[in-house]
Amino acid sequence: MTSFIPTFAHAHVTRDERHVYTVTIRDAKSRNILSSAVTLSVTDAVRWVAAQADARALVFRGDGERAFIGGADIHEMAALEPQSAREFITRLRGLCDALASVPVPTIARIRGFCLGGGLEVAAACDIRLGSNDAVFGMPEVRVGIPSVIHAVLLPALIGPGATNWLLLTGENVDAGQALRWGFLQFVSEPEELDELVERTVQPIVAAGPRAVRAQKSLLRYWRDASPEAGIDRSVDAFGDAFTTDEPSRYMEPFLSRRNR
């Protein structure tokens, strides 16, 4: 295990005794706005965590309680021209891709505003947990640009109709609607959000670490594969699980209980 955690300009990384990492956006204005500098720094932090062999899960969150991410930096975007616009959005794509590529479960802890690029970042995570005061929206059309990059995930997450409404109106929805659409998996009172995150982390770290990583890999593969190819890959993953003693160690307590 790497004991040293590097310092990032706009991300604070912590690790607990269970090897659960938390990446917190910092020094990004009061609503955790994604400027290019913030995006690049947070991407570096996520990629660093992804490379840690001891990692069991990653919790991703904004600093403070006003926002998860309030969106991309409109002041920076207002000065863009076609080429710099492509470069700007490619940097944000890099952050979303980095989160999607983390080999362990990623959990978005969402308080307050989750807008635009912030909603895309959340969509790139495996599990999304929010407080009931969270606000969700894709307001890009209201400032003259389309919603892009990981908004492409939304039809599969919330359905085409809900995606059409969200992206074409630019209107916000509350946490209850995000839950009904399936964007959020669970919602809590604001003061109970960390407890909700912990209730999700606990069973992950109690499971076999190789099995969880294999399951995460399969879930990503299944998203784009045909059913037949997905089943073929699953058979291989099942067999690979038995190349170590992890199955026997994790099955033993269940066998012991049945033999009593």
Rank of each mutant, 00 (worst) to 15 (best):
D133L: 07
E191F: 01
E191C: 00
V152N: 12
I89V: 13
I204N: 04
D97V: 02
V143C: 06
V20S: 07
I231P: 00
N132A: 08
L193P: 07
G176W: 12
A57C: 02
L219V: 05
W181C: 02
V141Y: 08
L196D: 12
A98L: 05
G144R: 13
G170Q: 02
A122G: 00
F254I: 15
L218Y: 13
A55F: 04
A123Y: 10
G62C: 00
I89A: 03
I204R: 03
V197Y: 12
V46R: 03
Q202R: 12
A124D: 10
M251W: 10
F136K: 01
L168H: 14
D236W: 10
Q215W: 10
F4I: 12
D240T: 10
T200L: 03
D194Q: 08
V13W: 08
A124R: 02
R26Y: 00
A206F: 05
V135W: 06
A123M: 12
L40G: 04
V205G: 03
V23Y: 04
C114F: 07
I107P: 02
R18H: 08
F242A: 01
T200Q: 13
I204S: 05
R86F: 00
R31E: 13
R26S: 04
I145D: 08
M77N: 06
V205S: 05
A37E: 12
A162G: 02
I145T: 14
P190S: 03
W222Q: 03
E87P: 01
H10T: 00
D133M: 09
Q202W: 13
D16I: 02
S188F: 12
E228C: 00
W165R: 14
I145Q: 14
A79E: 12
R210H: 15
G70T: 07
A11E: 09
A237K: 07
A50R: 09
A50I: 02
V187K: 09
L99N: 13
S35F: 08
W222N: 00
D97N: 09
E189A: 11
E171G: 08
V135A: 07
Q177I: 09
Q202F: 11
V13G: 05
S30A: 09
V197Q: 12
L193V: 03
R109T: 09
L58E: 11
A162R: 11
V235S: 11
V42K: 06
S3H: 14
G118I: 07
G230D: 02
E76L: 08
E189M: 12
V46F: 11
G64Y: 03
I89T: 11
M251C: 08
A79T: 15
A241F: 11
A72Y: 13
G118V: 13
S217V: 06
H12R: 15
E65K: 15
A211D: 05
M251A: 15
I69E: 10
A79W: 05
A151P: 11
D245M: 09
L154Y: 08
D174A: 02
A151L: 05
T243Q: 13
T2K: 09
V23P: 04
A206V: 02
D133W: 10
D133H: 12
L40F: 04
T14A: 01
H150V: 10
R220H: 04
K29N: 04
T243L: 09
C96R: 06
Q215H: 10
D194S: 13
R142H: 09
V38C: 05
G161Y: 12
R15C: 06
H19R: 14
